[in-house]
């Protein structure tokens, strides 16, 4: 291990090559530390997803990386510049070093092939030496690890609940023990109880395997609870980056403050809410009548 940094993104810019061009990510510099959960917060269209896709070079035309670099500091000590790899090198890098978990509780899994096959093709691509039996065994082990159970190898995505599908995605992302996991709104489509379970699972797995996480979501309260550091993005730029506690207790940027104020506190004051309690038809002590 050479440094504590895992990924250094410098002056990274992405444009959508339409008329007029849209600068989705502008001159972003950010460092992901080894083993940390870095939150990337912002509203839709702020460029947070584009930045993550850009790091993995997954952008589709008309999006183009216009400048900047992303250097991955491998645990072997090598520095890998993501922009200079050819297609084959990039494919070998993907998932091996950095995997992804997508939002789509529904759409991130191919609906017409089994979960087992989708897990196993990670191994057949990246571990060609593995036998068919080993691939299957390892895939089953991964499903056991995330609590889905190896019996589900033969299931199709639609046979699983949203939470289960997301666990399958996490199992898949873990397959090659990557050093970085990019999670794009991984719990947004899920109910809050399921969301909590998934978040705890991610946290446990990170403690066990030590990977770093870039966690992308618009749900700032959630990020505040799970992240070590949080970067707030707006209009393609990072407007503020700090530890979760500092960002919450002492935000420096106006937009960060506004974003924080947009989320009412669950147990605290009403904040910006104008409404005051009106008439209630309930007797004062009727709260627990059910």
């Amino acid at each position: 291990m050479t440094t504590d940094d895992l990924l250094t993104v410098s002056q990274f810019s992405v444009s959508y090559d339409v008329t007029p061009p849209v600068e989705a990510v502008r001159d972003v510099s950010i460092t992901v530390r080894r083993g940390e959960i870095l939150g990337l917060a912002g509203e839709s269209g702020c460029g947070k997803t584009t930045l993550a896709y850009g790091i993995q070079r997954l952008l589709k035309p008309p999006a183009v990386i216009t400048s900047g670099s992303a250097v991955f500091h491998d645990e072997s000590g090598d520095d890998i510049d993501i922009n200079t790899m050819d297609d084959a090198q990039m494919r070998a890098f993907r998932w091996e070093k950095a995997s992804m978990v997508f939002q789509g509780a529904m759409n991130a899994l191919n609906p017409i092939i089994t979960i087992g096959a989708q897990l196993q093709d990670v191994f057949s691509t990246h571990r060609p030496a593995m036998t068919r039996r080993d691939r299957k065994l390892e895939s089953g082990r991964l499903l056991d690890l995330v609590g889905v159970g190896s019996a589900r190898l033969r299931s199709y995505p639609h046979e699983l609940s949203g939470g289960m599908r997301q666990r399958v995605m996490i199992a898949m992302a873990l397959a090659l023990k990557p050093q970085l996991m990019i999670m794009d709104e991984p719990t947004t489509a899920l109910d809050v109880l399921v969301q909590r379970e998934i978040i705890e699972q991610i946290s446990d797995l990170r403690a066990e395997f030590g990977f770093s996480v870039i966690f992308i979501t618009h749900d700032l309260p959630l990020l505040l609870e799970i992240s070590d550091r949080i970067a707030v993005m707006r209009e393609g730029r990072i407007v503020e980056i700090d530890t979760a506690r500092n960002l919450y207790q002492n935000p420096q940027n106006d937009y960060t403050r506004r974003l924080l104020a947009s989320f009412p506190s669950l147990t605290g004051e009403r904040g910006g809410f104008v409404r005051r309690p009106g008439p209630s038809t309930l007797a004062t002590d009727a709260g627990g009548m059910f």
Binding site: I37, L193, E200, S203, L224, E225, L266, T267, G287
Partner: peptide
């Protein structure tokens, strides 16, 4: 008053409570 309500409430993110308690950042529970 009901367990289910309690479970829902505890599962909902609540930074205020989170930072009020002396937990290390990154811990979730």
């Amino acid at each position: 008053k009901h367990d289910y309500t309690l479970a829902l409430r505890n599962a909902s993110p609540d930074p205020e409570k989170h930072f009020a308690a002396p937990t290390t950042p990154g811990a979730t529970s």
